[in-house]
Design a protein around this nucleic acid. Structure first.
Lengths: 117, 117
DNA sequence: GAATCATATGCCGATATCGGCATGCGTCAA
DNA sequence: TTGACGCATGCCGATATCGGCATATGATTC
């Protein structure tokens, strides 16, 4: 009989994946371009195995993609998995209220940025 | 000497607060109106102490507010603390791309809803 | 095939939760 | 004051991580 779970089996859940501060930095870094594991580890000050483990979690929840390039494996952001989080938080936008118009402005900015490309 | 921390002291961090599936349900419920602890526990199928603990975490990261009303303590959503998460995820919006127009539509919907009230 | 480089996995100790239970504390009514 | 009610806290066992280290797996070159 099982009593008391430390954390309701959260791995492979996006919300949990980004709960880790160190892990959260990785997608940000990759936004600047795809990188091999070693480089991620170096730039974020973690060990190679550490980076590999975090990248595995991020891949499982759809936050990074990887492609093989010779001996290396290049990781790139795949923020599709982040949409649910963005939408969930957005569902509370009405409670920020004072800054609501800024959200609209922010989206308009984003739209403009995209259309200019 | 300290080696190996289970989770880099994340409590009192919004990202961690919403990483817990059960805890994440509470702000959603409170969106329907302020409620006392017992009611939260009842509607979400948790014990009263369980609800109290989750509410404490949520309060510490600014996701719920509370006011005393007689013997009761009423909790209400205070999504201000959710803005950083929304903005952080929004920083990756350019990587969703295909669904970008839907985000715009979603915001417009929100705007309309608000203006109608 | 052997050596080498890049990355992933496995094992470990330390630790931060989570849920259940009992109990403490604060408030209101009689 | 005493009792009843609502809620918060403390203690506990079970467990899911996290980081460090050593090592296995993969791929390339000689």
């Amino acid at each position: 009989m099982i009593l008391g779970m430390a954390r309701a089996a959260t791995t492979s859940d996006v919300f949990n994946a980004i709960a880790e501060p160190q892990r959260r930095q990785i997608p940000v870094l990759l936004r600047g371009g795809e990188r091999p594991v070693t480089e991620v580890a170096g730039e974020l000050g973690m060990t190679q195995p550490g980076a590999s483990k975090h990248l595995r979690v991020l891949r499982e929840v759809g936050l990074v993609q990887d492609r093989r390039a010779g001996k290396q494996r290049l990781y790139a952001p795949d923020a599709a998995g982040l949409r649910p989080v963005h939408e969930w938080t957005g569902g509370f936008a009405e409670f920020w209220n004072e800054s609501f118009d800024r959200l609209e402005a922010y989206v308009q900015d984003l739209k403009q940025t995209r259309d200019e490309e």
